[in-house]
Design a protein around this nucleic acid. Structure first.
Length: 278
DNA sequence: AACAAGACCTGCATGC
DNA sequence: TGCATGCAGGTCTTGT
């Protein structure tokens, strides 16, 4: 679920309650997630002060005052929420962090696709999960030229390549579909064919879609909520994602062929408008 | 090397 | 009601 806009929204929601705060207590209820939680995680976090919360792609990075960084990924169904004082951990709450001033954060991941790791600050960039990531789509390094270069010679469909975190880091199924629609590019087009003006258009579309989604607090479909528990509402702005059979936003009255189609690429659903996307 | 498909795990909607 | 099936925001691994 959580793609870049959702992770960024969670980050923003946690800054106010966690930055500068000291961790008073940590409970680990189940540690066999996608990769097991680090050994002695609770003991290593206890007493630490959270100095800063960053994001890299879909990872959250909690910088601690002992030079370590707690890496958190939410997987498909993960949540990081500020608990109501009366709230008790559910069956999928795999970790609970409590600050000195009494704020409790629940780490919830029904499908256990998420992960946590501890890495020292000066090795974060070399971490195996981060080192091969492509540029941040909202950063300066993500340009039409850079994207063209990354796609050069690639025969796979552009849809699949944008899902590859080494090409650009942070997009997932929703925002790839929406960005391709915005750019007017068919998801079936080869990566190599996206160069020059098309690549520029795609970069602009990706940036715009992500910015709007962050503004909307992300997209809430099934599991995702903001740290506060509020829903995001970008799902109401989807042009194509999950809209198979509907008329796309540019179809106008009657539609005239602007019917959103669902296909499967690399085992993932792709939604697009064959009329608007070429 | 690049690509597609399968695997991981759980919950939910759907249809019989 | 119960059961089987398919599907889901991610990404790692396997096989061609």
């Amino acid at each position: 679920m959580p793609e870049l806009p959702e992770v960024e929204t969670v980050r923003r929601g946690l800054i106010g309650v966690l930055e500068g705060k000291r961790i008073a207590h940590v409970a680990v209820r189940r540690r066999d997630l996608r990769r097991p939680f680090p050994a002695r995680l609770a003991a290593r976090l206890k007493g630490r002060r959270i100095e800063r919360i960053d994001r890299r792609a879909k990872y959250l990075l909690f910088h601690l005052d002992d030079g370590m960084v707690l890496l958190v990924h939410l997987g498909m169904s993960g949540r990081l929420v500020i608990a109501d004082p009366s709230e008790t951990p559910g069956p999928h709450t795999h970790g609970v962090v409590e600050t000195e001033d009494g704020v409790r954060i629940l780490y919830n991941a029904a499908r256990r696709f998420g992960l946590m790791d501890l890495v020292s600050q000066n090795q974060v960039g070399d971490h195996e999960l981060l080192r091969d990531l492509g540029p941040e789509p909202l950063g300066d390094a993500f340009t039409g030229t850079a994207l063209s270069a990354a796609l050069k010679g690639r025969k796979a469909p552009i849809k699949a390549l944008l899902m590859d975190q080494r090409i650009v880091a942070g997009l997932g199924n929703i925002y790839v579909c929406e960005s391709l629609y915005r750019a007017g590019l068919s998801p079936r087009r080869t990566g190599a064919s996206v160069a020059g003006a098309r690549a520029e258009r795609l970069v602009k579309a990706i940036r715009a879609v992500l910015a709007e989604a962050i503004e909307a607090g992300g997209s809430s479909l099934r599991d995702y909520v903001q740290a506060s528990g509020e829903l995001g509402y970008f799902q109401y702005s989807f042009a194509v994602y999950g809209r198979e059979g509907e008329v796309c936003p540019r179809g106008g009255a009657g539609g005239q062929g602007h019917v959103v189609r669902r296909i499967v690429q690399s085992n993932r659903a792709t939604f697009y408008c064959p009329k608007c996307q070429r």
